[in-house]
Amino acid sequence: MYNSKITGLGYYVPENIVTNNDLKEFMETSDEWIQERTGIKERRWIDPKSDDTTAVMGAKASKIAIERAGLTKDDIDFIVFATLSPDMYFPGGGVQVQDLLEMPTIGALDVRNQCSGFIYAMSVADQFIKTGMYKNILVIGAEYHSGGLDKSTRGRNVSVIFGDGAGAAVLSRSEEAGKGILSTHLHSEGKHAKELILEGPSTKHWVPEILEANNPDDVSYYPYMNGQFVFKHAITRFSEAIVEGLTANKLEKEDIDMLIPHQANLRISQFVQRKFRLPDDKVFNNIQKYGNTTAASVIIALTEAWEEGKIKDNDLVVLAAFGSGFTWGSVIIRW
């Protein structure tokens, strides 16, 4: 059996920076209120005049990752694209990236697991490589949230959190024992689906129904989150997924060199950090400047940590995420 190893990383975020103070122009909020609850200072929102979309950002991040892997687009055998905000209801973003990068007619798979989307996508790619089916897989996490948020005071509890961006990793076949992805661990609990949800448009709530109702109070097409409920479950499931990954590889929390948590809320990351008694230099957070970019958050953070020299050869790197579904999981990597 082969191992899969990250050989290239890249990310892209829109140029348009939206600070907490900028949000005061269209909702009742404050920098202090947002930072106290989320740790976020600013986020990137696509300028409507820009050509950026979820797929375009994914393609831009992918070009960087492929180049850093020392490969060309023709070396990629498969695409796994994670997002909750595709450019179209269908087809998905994976085939768009295949077209945008003018790749051969390779397969493209979309993963719809929201905040844990990149963790799930990495797990899928890892299995394809370990079984020998593919040699180089492009794994993408990309989100365009800003166009679909309720930016009024009514929606501020959710809309202040999310940002736009994309990240990509190239996963390649390796025969080096004990290096690369050691294991992945995935879970779900669908009974809590409505605690973090975007209900419509959907097959249960199509656009014509929304239009015919002519109800200005219909918020079904905006994201809903039961914040406290999600927070309590997140800190539990984050910890469980990390412990599960360590245990599977006969490792201890002291063996962790870098933890990259999903950037949902700085308070969640800080809680997990305290629970595992990890110093600041072993946990990487960038939610302060990007907000929650959902499927893109882990890969953007991983790329930045690597670019800043905070991840070195032979380091034990742990990726973990929790989100809508509920779904959660972890990836254990020996760099």
Rank of each mutant, 00 (worst) to 15 (best):
M122S: 11
N157E: 14
G148V: 03
E143D: 05
T105K: 14
I161W: 05
D99W: 00
G141S: 10
A142Y: 05
G117V: 05
R154E: 15
P104R: 15
D126W: 04
I137Y: 11
F162T: 02
G163N: 04
V111M: 07
D99H: 09
G141F: 07
R156W: 03
S116D: 11
G155M: 11
N136C: 09
I161Q: 14
K151C: 01
I161K: 08
S146G: 01
S146N: 02
I106A: 06
G117K: 04
I140G: 00
D99N: 12
Y134N: 12
I140R: 00
Q114M: 12
V160G: 03
S116P: 06
G141Y: 06
Y144E: 12
R154Q: 14
C115A: 09
F118V: 10
G107T: 10
R156M: 08
T105W: 03
C115D: 05
L100N: 11
A166Q: 01
S146M: 02
V158Y: 01
E102A: 13
M122W: 12
V139F: 09
N157K: 14
F162S: 01
S159N: 01
A125W: 04
K135D: 14
L101Q: 03
V124T: 08
Q127N: 15
R156Y: 04
N136M: 11
G132I: 12
D99M: 02
C115S: 08
G148N: 10
G147Y: 09
A108T: 05
M133T: 15
V160W: 01
I137L: 13
E102M: 10
V158T: 15
S123P: 09
A166T: 00
S116M: 11
S123G: 15
V139M: 05
I161E: 03
T131D: 09
G148C: 03
R112A: 14
E143F: 03
G163F: 03
V111Q: 04
L100V: 07
V139K: 06
D99R: 09
A125L: 06
I119D: 04
Y120L: 07
N113D: 00
C115Y: 04
E102L: 09
I129Y: 05
R112F: 12
L138Q: 06
A142P: 03
K135V: 02
V124Y: 12
V139P: 04
D126M: 02
E102S: 14
A121K: 06
K130D: 08
I137W: 11
N113Q: 13
D110W: 10
T131K: 08
M122V: 15
D150V: 02
A108Y: 08
D164L: 02
D150W: 04
A166V: 00
G165Q: 12
Y134Q: 13
M133P: 06
I140A: 00
S146P: 03
Q127Y: 12
F128P: 05
F118D: 09
Y120H: 11
A142L: 07
R112K: 15
H145E: 13
R154A: 13
V160R: 02
